[in-house]
Design a protein around this nucleic acid. Sequence first.
RNA 1: GGGCCGGUAGCUCAGCCUGGAAGAGCGCUCGGCUUGCACCCGAGAGGCCCCGGGUUCAAAUCCCGGCCGGUCCA
Length: 909
Amino acid sequence: MTEVDPKEYEVNFFKEEGFIRKKCKIGGEYFWTLNESLDTCQDAPCVEYWFDKISSIRNLSVSDSRKIFLMFFKKRGHEVLRPRPVVARWREDLYLTIASIVVFQPHVTSGIVPPPANPLVISQPSIRLEDIDNVGLTIGRHLTTFEMAAHHAFNYPNKRIYWKDETVRYAFEFFTKELRIPKDLIVFKESWWEGGGNAGPCFEVAVGGLELATLVFMQYSIEGKEYRPLPLKIVDTGYGIERISWFTKKTPTAFHAIYGNLLERFRNIIGLERPEEEILWAAFRAAGRLDPESPESIVNYYRKVAEIGNYELKYVKDVLSSEAKLYSVLDHTKTIALMLADGIVPSNSGEGYLARLVIRRALRQLSLLGFDGDLADLVDLQIGYWADNFKQLKEQRNYIIEAVILESKKFRELLRKGRKEIRKLVKMKGSLDVEDLVRLYDSKGLPPEIVAEESRKFNVEVDIPHNFYSLVASRHKAPARLKTVGKVVKLPEDIKKWASQFRLTELLFHKDPYLRKFTAKVLGIKDRYLVLDSTAFYPKGGGQDYDKGYIMINGRRILVNEVYKIDGVVVHVLETPIDIPKGLNVIGVIDWYRRFKLMRHHTATHIILGAARRVLGRHIWQAGAEKSEEKGRLDITHHKPLNKDDLRKIEELANMVIDDRREVRTYIINRNEAEDKYGFSLYQGGVPMEPRLRIVEIKNWDVEACFGTHVRNTAEVGSIKIIKSERIQDGVVRLEFVAGPRVAEVLTNAENRLDALAKELGASHGHELKRVQSLKRRLDSMEKIVEEYRRLWIRTLKKNALKVGAFSLVIFEPLEHTSEAIQEVLRQLTKEDNVVAIAVIKENQKTRFEIALGQGILSKINVNRIVEKIKEEIGGKGGGKGGRASILIPRIISNDKARDLFVNILKEI
RNA sequence: GGGCCGGUAGCUCAGCCUGGAAGAGCGCUCGGCUUGCACCCGAGAGGCCCCGGGUUCAAAUCCCGGCCGGUCCA
């Protein structure tokens, strides 16, 4: 933490109430308290947990805690906001919602879009995976999934809502009045918060060893090493709903408070013995001081637990590490359910990988607990347990279960193959080192614990280094980059710069997508690049290709070849450079035939997406799309390849929507209103940074924020034919389709290809298949005949062999020049022991000798001696090994000469 | 997105480092043994060694590019 001005933490409320500022004797941080004798900050790891001793008459479940929190702030003028998905669809730089503030970044925090309400209160389910290894061990301090309850106030320069003083008052009032915590036990610890390029002072509110809330005052942007005051000052608070529940329930672990009876159900299903309450309370006492990052601290923790309860150390370790696994399974299964419910498809990259990661960690913990049942059953219990809190779980249950089953199957398969690999490695090497462990995990996905377990079966002990996962990470030098929108505009840099000076182009195609001809004023022309004050030419973007057409200047037509948009300015790329004075009016005409096809393909994309979501499930999201004149392409997220039946259903449904003649409306509305009304499935093709969104709505079918041009009614699409579907990545399926007149064109093309094939085969229509089958049969029999002849020929060759000393020399010019055939003949000839077989192959003014020796004479002759002799006699390059060699002579050698050559060589040997 | 691993018979894989006759086990077909089945014994069929290029007299093997699959990512 950098040096912070203590004034940042001076709050009127503290003065009024008589709070005093003290310094923690352990951690050294300053904190505010009403209790003069307090000398520690009351936060882990400076003190142990002791909040169980604080008398409080409340006993709040997670759901009660949330309700109380929201109500408290609602009564104090805050509007209650519905929670957002745990998948941050509106963020380009983040996969998961890691905090409530993420909901408002970057559009609200940067000042572009006003907040949906001000002040507001929200309880946002959040997922953080960076501490996934510590879940369970710390008995509840770390969770991958938690609800961050927050009251936010956005203070604009001309509109103040509330700031530090009010925030602290609210927190204090909430804790003392709602949770009925004695005033003098609440500690406000001074701290500093930084994240997402912003920073500010904060108070961490801790009671009895447990941090219950953080009150952040976002007021700086970090630029390089400097902090610059932000115009927008944001109250960003975070109250841990699960911690509040734990605090009031006073259970030995947070998991007992969060999951209630589900914990014992999981325990029974997994078959883990229930430990005595005392050891858990001993753990509770010691866990506050536990630093999970330090192996010594973990050892000390176990020692302390043993000491408190007078247990044997090994017993403590066994019980608590099993408990930790049970707790992380509880935590992970909830996370899995929430992630999948919001439509993540497990895969090997992006957010899909994060889902796979959590699923695999859960499977691993279960396997280490010796559980051989189905993870999906446990996830299903979570769905039931949380169904009233998160209705998306119930709605998406089928998909969630199916995805978990599929992932479990993949992991089992991976382990099965992996175990074989481990066995092989252990047998070969006799031991495994760290390098092996890292390699097995990194490239095969085999967790070190599983490797150790497997190799133990062969009495090979493996040491798993404490820093194993950072070793793996160090092999990945390049940091994992997050999703980015690829806005590739093919224009020279100087043109981009030049274009951005103009005012925004009026987009006529948005007002009227059917406009074909327009008049506009020239704002600038440079070389072949033209900027107008308004245009009907659609620039490449939103997956839709640009329009083509021409510009009329003084009765001359100049083709428009490409169109791009730079920061709201449309740049027309002309066929040739021209010189036109600024301010001149020109007529633009777009290639309507092309445009109309693009429009139809674009609307078709929306129709198909809607159909796919209905046929396959709500986890279907657009992962990319492109519409050209020829075809449309839509990539969707899905966990398995589509079968014929899926495709047929999607196509049928899509065509049904066309036949339905549904209205396609485009309109601009307020962003907050749009999100509220239609949800985040609006953002299929990226997230525009605009306060107002252009919405394309196909009535009762599909609503998306979209920049493209669309037909007015689905009937205009004509018809849709899906021409191809392929899995392009793990978790992504690509659909290719045509619409309108392209359907007939594609079919005509297919017909033409079939015609050409029929003609080539000499078959009449409809008999192509039979013809190919009979040709195949004929080819087979021909091959057999060739084989017969080859055998016959070999027999003749053998008969005509020359006797040279002990050897039998067969020298021949092969009839077939394929190397397989030559090798086959040589193989047959050298089945007899004393044979020296030579194939003489002449081509391209070169002669190649393929030499093969019979088994029985291998000990007498070295093929390379023959090769050397040939080199001496007539030159050439070559060599060989065993009974085979080949040599190439760069000229034609007659058969007679070759025979004499080999006869002489064999005589000499 | 990036790193790493892999692609050889229907399946599971060996061979690749160190270039020179394409292999094993299972499965399949036929035959033997057997009342029949299983086991066992014998014989056989089955390969664009992922694709393209390069190096070389010679590439499954070495090099480059691509495609496909797997896996991991502080």
